[in-house]
Deep mutational scan, measured.
Amino acid sequence: RSLKHLCRLKIRKCMGRLHLRCPVFMSFLPLPNRLKAYVLY
């Protein structure tokens, strides 16, 4: 697996499933929209 994929998995694990599904939580993250979309992919 690529480093990019492993990073996405780690971020998702740290955030938890409930936060990933909450659009309000995701909108408050201080991340560029492209990065938010990548994490959610």
Rank of each mutant, 00 (worst) to 15 (best):
2 S>L: 12
9 L>H: 08
21 R>A: 08
23 P>C: 14
36 K>S: 01
22 C>D: 00
8 R>W: 15
26 M>E: 13
39 V>Q: 00
32 P>A: 11
6 L>C: 13
38 Y>H: 02
16 G>E: 15
31 L>Y: 01
10 K>H: 02
16 G>R: 12
23 P>S: 14
39 V>G: 01
25 F>E: 08
31 L>T: 03
11 I>H: 01
22 C>H: 09
2 S>R: 07
7 C>G: 05
18 L>Q: 01
9 L>W: 06
12 R>P: 06
13 K>G: 11
13 K>H: 08
36 K>A: 03
3 L>H: 00
25 F>L: 13
31 L>M: 05
14 C>V: 15
34 R>A: 05
33 N>M: 01
3 L>A: 00
38 Y>P: 01
7 C>N: 03
5 H>W: 05
3 L>D: 04
30 P>G: 14
24 V>C: 14
5 H>M: 11
34 R>G: 05
6 L>R: 13
40 L>E: 10
26 M>W: 12
36 K>F: 10
17 R>Y: 15
24 V>Y: 07
29 L>W: 06
30 P>Q: 15
11 I>C: 00
1 R>C: 07
37 A>M: 06
22 C>T: 07
26 M>Y: 06
24 V>N: 14
12 R>L: 09
26 M>I: 09
6 L>K: 10
35 L>K: 00
16 G>P: 08
25 F>C: 03
13 K>C: 06
36 K>L: 05
32 P>M: 13
34 R>S: 06
15 M>A: 06
22 C>Y: 07
30 P>W: 12
36 K>R: 05
15 M>W: 12
38 Y>K: 03
23 P>L: 15
32 P>N: 04
31 L>I: 10
24 V>G: 14
27 S>Y: 00
12 R>M: 12
10 K>C: 06
12 R>Q: 07
20 L>A: 11
35 L>S: 01
23 P>Q: 15
30 P>E: 15
23 P>E: 15
40 L>S: 08
19 H>P: 04
32 P>I: 10
17 R>L: 13
9 L>E: 14
28 F>T: 05
3 L>G: 01
27 S>C: 02
16 G>N: 13
3 L>S: 00
41 Y>C: 12
10 K>V: 15
23 P>A: 14
34 R>E: 09
36 K>C: 03
32 P>H: 03
27 S>P: 03
17 R>G: 14
36 K>M: 03
6 L>T: 09
9 L>M: 11
6 L>Q: 14
14 C>Q: 11
13 K>R: 11
40 L>D: 08
5 H>C: 09
11 I>N: 01
38 Y>I: 05
13 K>V: 05
3 L>V: 02
18 L>D: 02
12 R>A: 05
20 L>C: 05
1 R>K: 08
17 R>C: 13
39 V>W: 03
8 R>E: 08
33 N>S: 12
13 K>L: 05
5 H>G: 04
10 K>T: 11
28 F>P: 04
37 A>V: 03
19 H>C: 06
16 G>A: 14
1 R>T: 04
10 K>R: 03
37 A>Q: 11
20 L>S: 08
34 R>Y: 07
17 R>S: 13
15 M>E: 01
30 P>F: 06
40 L>N: 01
4 K>Y: 14
25 F>S: 08
31 L>C: 02
24 V>K: 15
27 S>T: 05
4 K>T: 10
26 M>L: 11
2 S>G: 13
18 L>F: 10
15 M>Q: 02
22 C>G: 04
14 C>M: 14
21 R>P: 04
37 A>R: 10
30 P>H: 13
28 F>D: 09
20 L>Q: 08
39 V>A: 04
31 L>E: 00
10 K>A: 15
36 K>G: 02
18 L>V: 03
4 K>S: 07
7 C>H: 01
7 C>D: 03
6 L>S: 13
30 P>A: 15
34 R>K: 07
3 L>T: 01
40 L>C: 06
32 P>R: 03
33 N>A: 13
35 L>G: 00
16 G>K: 12
24 V>L: 08
5 H>Q: 05
35 L>D: 00
34 R>V: 03
18 L>A: 02
7 C>F: 11
19 H>V: 08
4 K>C: 07
21 R>Q: 01
19 H>W: 09
31 L>R: 04
30 P>M: 14
22 C>R: 05
3 L>W: 10
30 P>K: 15
32 P>L: 15
10 K>S: 04
15 M>D: 00
31 L>D: 05
18 L>P: 02
33 N>T: 10
29 L>C: 05
40 L>P: 03
19 H>T: 06
37 A>S: 07
18 L>K: 01
29 L>S: 05
1 R>F: 14
11 I>L: 08
19 H>E: 05
15 M>S: 02
8 R>H: 04
21 R>M: 12
30 P>D: 14
12 R>I: 12
39 V>K: 00
19 H>Y: 04
38 Y>L: 04
25 F>Q: 07
12 R>C: 05
4 K>E: 02
24 V>A: 14
38 Y>A: 04
24 V>S: 14
10 K>P: 04
24 V>R: 15
35 L>F: 12
11 I>A: 02
26 M>Q: 07
29 L>Y: 02
35 L>M: 04
41 Y>S: 15
27 S>R: 11
40 L>K: 02
32 P>T: 04
37 A>L: 03
36 K>I: 05
21 R>S: 07
28 F>C: 06
1 R>M: 15
6 L>P: 02
7 C>P: 02
28 F>R: 12
9 L>Q: 13
12 R>T: 06
25 F>K: 12
18 L>W: 09
27 S>A: 09
20 L>V: 06
34 R>C: 06
25 F>R: 07
10 K>E: 06
17 R>F: 15
17 R>V: 13
10 K>W: 14
19 H>S: 07
13 K>P: 03
38 Y>M: 03
11 I>Q: 00
14 C>G: 08
25 F>I: 14
38 Y>G: 02
2 S>E: 09
11 I>P: 01
17 R>T: 09
9 L>D: 12
24 V>E: 15
15 M>L: 13
41 Y>N: 09
40 L>T: 05
40 L>R: 11
37 A>E: 10
31 L>S: 07
32 P>C: 14
36 K>N: 00
25 F>M: 09
28 F>N: 10
33 N>H: 12
17 R>P: 09
8 R>Q: 09
27 S>M: 00
7 C>R: 00
7 C>Y: 04
21 R>Y: 08
40 L>Q: 06
12 R>V: 09
18 L>E: 01
39 V>T: 06
11 I>V: 07
22 C>Q: 02
14 C>R: 05
34 R>T: 06
32 P>D: 00
21 R>V: 10
29 L>Q: 02
12 R>G: 05
31 L>W: 06
13 K>Y: 06
26 M>C: 10
7 C>A: 11
3 L>C: 02
3 L>R: 01
25 F>D: 13
23 P>D: 14
20 L>F: 09
24 V>F: 15
41 Y>A: 15
33 N>E: 13
22 C>L: 14
38 Y>T: 03
20 L>G: 08
8 R>V: 11
32 P>V: 14
29 L>D: 03
41 Y>H: 12
17 R>Q: 12
29 L>K: 05
41 Y>G: 15
13 K>E: 13
17 R>I: 06
2 S>C: 02
35 L>E: 00
5 H>L: 06
1 R>V: 08
23 P>M: 14
18 L>G: 00
8 R>K: 12
1 R>W: 11
27 S>Q: 08
33 N>Q: 12
19 H>G: 10
23 P>R: 15
26 M>P: 10
28 F>Q: 11
5 H>T: 07
23 P>G: 13
16 G>T: 12
14 C>T: 12
37 A>H: 07
10 K>L: 15
40 L>Y: 02
7 C>I: 13
32 P>E: 00
36 K>H: 01
14 C>L: 15
8 R>T: 10
39 V>I: 10
28 F>S: 09
